[in-house]
Nucleic acid binder design. Structure first.
Lengths: 261, 261
DNA sequence: TTCTGTGAATCTCTTCACAGCA
DNA sequence: TGCTGTGAAGAGATTCACAGAA
């Protein structure tokens, strides 16, 4: 999910698979809930259910961290919370800046899960001078002019981009130039960053489109149609240009009626 | 990324890999941008760069859809926009409800990419009676009591959950009972749903934690430390319970100083 | 006996490298 | 000649199934 070439380009250092890393937060959340209920130990089966994965996967994941369980018993909840937190780097404090305080940026700033678990909102930054000084989630919004000094002064290495798509790359460049090496991008754009900078993106419309794909297939199967052919395309198919008009095949059930040959 | 057992459990129907489906929206976005600039054709190399992937992957992805390119030339932009839209089911209209109109729900409602590209916000729903009737993004907020009738009357099959974690499962159950079969979950909870319902989740704090993991590793490598051992754990490690206190190994560089043996 | 930890098998995804069409 | 489409190889992730510790 990290953008393109950026992703762990050099040494794989300690061999903990990316897919496992992506699940550790899930386990951590489930464990934290257990911890709050003062549950002392948990089996791989129980924890897996709580985290929404299967137990073999969970055990395999944990095996990359070390042997933290007890055969015949399970895992010590508190101990595992600590180990995973440490592995994820949450035993230290990560100052974060959010750039772009529109609807989304404000929502992020107010998001509770932010403050807890090792992350601290160091500053909210927006390009609109009218926003400057206005308090959002208890913090005064700072103007973009201050971006570099905020990053430097607070030792920020993680930035969240919640600006419109058009501004994202420029903001990204400034963040990176100022020393940020991890970026969480909510803007619907592909960011290009130098080697060594991690980008993860969260994109509402992509998620919806993936759901639509599966939804469409369900509908197709229900009515006995070929899954790839929608019931009634609303838009007309554009004619192919002359250069590309011949010899198309497609995987069989391919818009036979609508498309020109 | 769909939650657990739910994910495409039955027939794989037309064999288009999940990883490919997840990238189609990316290609579509890049193609739409080219289309707006009236670019007629594009090579796999150019398009791949614009979408942030490599060209071999892109060509392989497209090969699952059919042979839509022209050797020696590239892909016809308009034509490919149509084919991908169709494949994703975006040539039809998907009514969507958003449940939970807090900061995040409002941000989602105002998000432009929603309205375009086949999705239409059919209703905004919130449990707070004080919200009812208040216009958000041009739509009056409806009360949760109306949830079932809204779903049924509008033929909604996709629901977005932006409620607090505590309410999410309950809202999910009601959505599913009313006929929703695809859910986009922004609440930090694992949702359990019956077979045949797709769930995708978007989780800010998980993304941040993954970034923190990589960030920590970078810092560790820089200073020549073992990557898995953080500089200075801020929290004390909890002692293991007696039952689990012996024989731990861990993958070598394992908190030797801080942890009790 | 119970439940973890893990090799081995399997499945999926990515990348390579080149045949073949325009 | 240039670029797509795709088998084949390679890498990674998941699942199986069971040895072995408590």
């Amino acid at each position: 999910m990290a953008t393109g070439r950026t992703h762990r380009p050099a040494t794989r250092s300690r061999g903990i698979p990316e897919a496992t890393v992506a699940r550790l937060p899930l386990y951590l959340r489930a464990l934290t809930a257990l911890s709050e209920r003062s549950v002392p130990t948990v089996s791989s089966e129980e924890l897996a259910t709580a985290a929404g994965v299967n137990s073999a996967k969970l055990r395999k994941d944990f095996s990359y961290l070390g042997s933290y369980g007890t055969r015949g018993v399970g895992y010590d909840v508190e101990y595992l919370v600590y180990q995973i937190s440490r592995e994820l780097g949450l035993t230290q404090d990560w100052p974060v800046v959010i750039v772009g305080i529109g609807n989304l940026g404000a929502a992020l700033a107010n998001y509770g899960g932010f403050a807890s678990r090792g992350f601290r909102v160091a500053a909210l930054i927006d390009a609109d001078p009218a926003m400057a000084g206005k308090p959002v989630a208890g913090l005064p919004v700072r103007h973009t002019d201050e971006l570099e000094s905020i990053i430097t002064d607070n030792g920020v290495s993680i930035g969240v981009i919640a600006t419109p798509a058009g501004a994202a790359q420029q903001v990204c460049d400034r963040l990176v130039a100022a020393g940020v090496t991890s970026i969480l991008n909510f803007a619907p754009t592909v960011l290009s960053v130098p080697e060594g900078v991690d980008v993860r993106k969260v994109d509402l419309s992509i998620e919806l489109q993936i759901l639509a794909f599966h939804e469409q297939r369900k509908a197709g199967e229900e009515s006995g149609q070929t899954a790839t052919t929608p019931a009634q395309p609303r838009t007309g198919a554009p004619a192919r240009t002359a250069a590309a008009a011949v010899g198309r095949k497609g995987p069989e059930g391919d818009v036979p009626a609508v498309m020109p040959a």
